[in-house]
């Protein structure tokens, strides 16, 4: 298992690109961090998720 945005996920073995496509995130509106490190978009296709990873997928919302 790994954690994606605070929730348990069994996506180990998938690439970030696959995960994002399956979960219907808009690629141009997100940033991804794995274990505290920002993952550049160019590496989404070659980066595989592993058990124990902590992944954050973030975007902009309204704020002051």
């Amino acid at each position: 298992m790994l954690k994606i945005n605070g929730t348990d996920s069994d996506s180990a073995g998938k690439t970030v690109e696959q995960y994002i496509a399956e979960t219907n995130y808009n690629l141009s509106r997100i940033a991804v961090e794995i274990n505290g490190e920002i993952l550049p978009k160019s590496l989404y296709g070659s980066t595989v998720l592993h058990d124990g990873d902590t992944v954050e997928i973030v975007g902009f919302v309204g704020g002051g």
Binding site: N24, Y25, R29, G59, V61, G62
Partner: peptide
């Protein structure tokens, strides 16, 4: 205009941008 960064929503939700 100011914005905040939060855990992202999927495409079903509207995006502020």
């Amino acid at each position: 205009i100011t914005l905040a960064v939060r855990r992202a929503n999927t495409k079903e939700h509207e995006n502020i941008l």
